[in-house]
Design a protein around this nucleic acid. Structure first.
Ligand code: MN
Ligand code: MN
Ligand code: MN
Ligand code: MN
Lengths: 219, 219
DNA sequence: TTATATTTTTAGACAAACCTAAAAATATAA
DNA sequence: TTATATTTTTAGGTTTGTCTAAAAATATAA
């Protein structure tokens, strides 16, 4: 059985390895965990000792198959709890991350499966992030950043890259929830901002930054 | 903000003080927490420092009003989570205690209130134990031990004193769930065992020990 | 009331997880 | 290639929460 700290490090390494295909560096892990490089080195020794990561001094780390399995299970738990908090308890999508960060560490036989069952086996969490199944398989997402759409393309909001409260609440204000339909009407060359028609026919201007943090599926 | 260990000690002291009206002793707390007296003394100093308990060396401890408030809130959380696990996730009543023991420590604004709302403001948990309301008020239970009934009395099962898996599963086998109706037909003087008619008209024999661990409301 | 038993506290240690500061290794630039 | 900058590790220390063994205080019994 792992401590909460050990679990959190595994998840951090997983996240980093997800973006960059190479070994996760000490500094990258420290940044992700909001701690110091020295603390990370300490923990890497422990995780290596438990065969959850491959670690060579100064060379960064990679999850072993066992470490990968544990990290995946943790993300599954985190995202299932997020679904419960939003779908059943009525939290907003910008309120649930910190709670799920705690709930993901609750250990118990059958808990995850019962949660999954109760929620109807959701494939995506409230932010559009995929929920791996009980065997650790990920649903494939056919989505692109809004910024990559061509003028005239229509799409449906499927997720966010930025999970910050500020961004999520901004999207709420713009009526851009998951599943919202939109059409790219114009891209202004001056600042790459976007004119977009939303579901209710309303036209809004979105900054380049918004376009680079919002995923859509072209329809 | 308190650590999980601090919260658990507060709850242990609360439980002990609930049964015995006098100050909780170091040894009693050690037994409840399944730890050593030395560890308890350490923690009592910390809790006293934080004004959560009144502590005088060798004299045992009592919760301060602040400590009492925190312990009550913790029990409220614990029991609400137990209701969710049984009513929504489908766990059996003997499976939820350890999970709730972890879930009770999850911190988050509005979590308890939303949980309470989602569950329909339950007054009792799956074991018949009362759930204090948001202001820390306890529902009054008009219940007695089955062993105190007179022959001929009828009653309804309202709770258990022993929360062990063994006892709860035994009750399941006897069809003695919460709300089950029963009638005391006979008390054998030899060993104080009880002949009881259950809901479906079936007659069963219950040991003195069972009678002393099962609460009923006389109807 | 004195001796004995029990309870509680102290002393000293340990592991987990963190920190800062300094040293060592690696990467980059002149 | 040598000097400089950056990254990473080590060294040494802290806090929380635990432990065992010994000492001190309190309770019980002769
Ligand atoms: Mn999250
Ligand atoms: Mn976490
Ligand atoms: Mn999420
Ligand atoms: Mn209960």
């Amino acid at each position: 059985m792992l401590s909460q700290a050990e679990e959190n490090y595994l998840k951090a390494i997983f996240k980093i390895s997800e973006k960059e295909a190479k070994a996760a560096t000490t500094n990258a892990i420290a940044a992700e965990m909001q701690t110091t490089a020295a603390s990370v080195t300490d923990m890497l020794k422990r995780l290596s000792e438990k065969s959850l990561i491959d670690y060579e001094k100064y060379r960064g780390v990679q999850l072993t198959p066992e470490g990968n399995k544990l990290a995946t299970a943790l993300i599954r738990k985190h995202r299932l709890w997020e679904v419960l908090l939003v779908e059943k308890l009525g939290f907003a999508w910008d309120e649930v991350h910190e709670l799920a960060e705690q709930l993901e560490h609750v250990q118990g036989n059958g808990l995850v499966d019962r949660l999954d069952e109760f929620l109807g086996h959701p494939k995506f969490d409230p932010h559009g992030d995929p929920i791996p199944d009980a065997e650790g398989r990920w649903a494939f997402r056919q989505q692109v950043l809004l910024s990559t759409l061509k003028v005239g393309d229509k799409g449906v909001v499927t997720g966010v890259d930025d999970h910050s409260t500020a961004f999520l609440q901004y999207l709420d204000q713009m009526n851009l929830a998951l599943g919202a339909q939109l059409e790219l009407l114009e891209r202004f060359p001056y600042d790459q901002s976007l004119r977009v028609r939303t579901e209710n026919g309303q036209e809004i201007i979105l900054s380049e930054k918004v376009g680079q943090n919002l995923y859509v599926k072209i329809s």
